[in-house]
Design a protein around this nucleic acid. Structure first.
Lengths: 251, 251
DNA sequence: CGCGTTTTTGAAGCCCCTCAAGTGTAGTGG
DNA sequence: CCACTACACTTGAGGGGCTTCAAAAACGCG
């Protein structure tokens, strides 16, 4: 079974054995990091593209008051900006949330990998577009969704992303985020996250327990999150069913 | 004087006459659009990369309840995703906010333009990284800054971006956004935006009047926005002065 | 001048925050 | 096996920032 990096990219474009071998070679010397370790900090000069093979990491910024805002989760298979080497310095931090296995692909190697074959090129481009789509989706959540909707939306996003790399079963997946981390991602307080989760648990919508997400009622969760919202306002209706939770990127 | 597209890209990498000619040719047949016109909608298949030469546009999503969230402003010189053609359909809308002059570069042409010369490649890559940086910056604002900070931060971002394409003077720039638009970008209500602006006006911090932004006290505005925040938490302090407002991307 | 859009202001209410304390739960060492 | 510690989770009470609702004033444009 190929690693999560390969599995993620295959979801964006069909990759031949040669392509897969290139990807595996590029991530051939991963390193292990403990939880809460910064891989790279604001102001550092980036030299390589990080690829998370195991565990969870995140992008985040710290504000003067000490508040933290997480801007993205990096789950198995996820990687940093493919062209990050053309920046003089990082404008945010990337740190592990759990114990991680991380490979660092030097920028020069990455540049070659992207154009190695047309399939790989397209896979990387799509991955990049999906990442941006998720960023926009987060902005929409923070701007126009209340706390319950944000939590529901994030949980669905995570569940689908985990499923896309083969790390989710029908109703559950690993979800090692603490309530503090969820709060820092959604722009809320841990206290309020706790109340939302209690409500979801009592209403049998979803449950977060000992690092595992269990979706009790996918219908209710999608309903709360208005997860299918984008489709409602299209000029041309798409009658295809099941697209709401089948997307590569979260709505 | 070259168009805003050229001016923006030159800010990211030095471009020779040949490069400039390629860019001017690519945007040679712009079209005019009235304000409040959708250039492309959610669900549409993208075929070209839009380049805003004059006027303002924005990316936005509409939620089931009818609420709008703007996820990015496209000012003169700004353009859409350079690889958007590898997506089957748009997941958000792009619409004009004012009368606009917009060029559409077909995806195939764009693919060639990006790799035409190393300088152009780097300019496009950096522009893309800055766009993502701005997206992350918006997430930070929505998550961890209060209303006054968000307004101040957005105004500074816009002012600097306008200055980068030569469209700002020492203290002012055109800013044709209504308070409703600002509210839809910051995840607030127009009523509250109005109160924030009144407060800034009364405290002689900044003023928004008849489509023009006037920064009365850049010091106060930077202070309110905590615009320099990122630098405070670097591992290695950078003693260089004046970087706070000299960045290509807003903090 | 007349009309639509934008801006402005007030009053009341709710969502989420802040502060504070208490309850698990896992790991460690005696 | 049980203290002890550290961390995460849980719950309550009170307050504040922003929203909602409503209406009037000002602006821009034919």
């Amino acid at each position: 079974m190929p690693n999560a990096f390969v599995r993620k990219l295959i979801a964006y474009a069909p990759l031949g054995d040669g392509d897969v071998r290139l990807l595996v070679e590029a991530t051939g010397s991963p390193r292990r990091f403990a939880a809460h370790h910064d891989l790279i900090c604001e102001g550092d000069q980036p030299r390589a593209v990080f690829v998370v093979l195991e565990g969870w990491a995140c992008r985040y910024k710290i504000l003067p008051g000490g508040a933290r805002q997480i801007t993205a989760f990096l789950m198995p298979g996820d990687f940093g900006d493919i062209h990050v080497g053309s920046l003089e310095e990082m404008d945010h931090n990337i740190g592990t949330l759990t114990d991680c296995e991380v490979a660092a692909i030097p920028q020069g190697h990455m540049d070659a990998l992207i154009v190695a074959t047309p399939d790989l090129t397209r896979a990387f481009w799509r991955a990049q577009l999906v990442d941006q789509s998720v960023l926009r989706s987060w902005i929409v959540s923070m701007g126009r969704r209340d706390a319950a909707q944000r939590v529901a939306h994030l949980m669905l996003e995570i569940y689908i992303r985990m499923r896309n790399v083969g790390l989710a079963s029908a109703e559950t997946c690993q979800m090692p985020l603490t309530q503090v981390v969820i709060a820092d991602a959604l722009g809320l307080t841990p206290v309020h996250i706790n109340r939302i989760l209690r409500d979801f648990r009592e209403r049998s919508v979803m449950e977060l327990r000992s690092g595992k997400l269990t979706i009790t009622s996918i219908r209710d969760l999608v309903g709360v999150a208005e997860f299918d919202d984008g489709y409602l306002h299209r000029r041309i209706a798409q009658p295809s069913a099941g697209t709401a939770t089948g997307l590569g990127a979260a709505g």
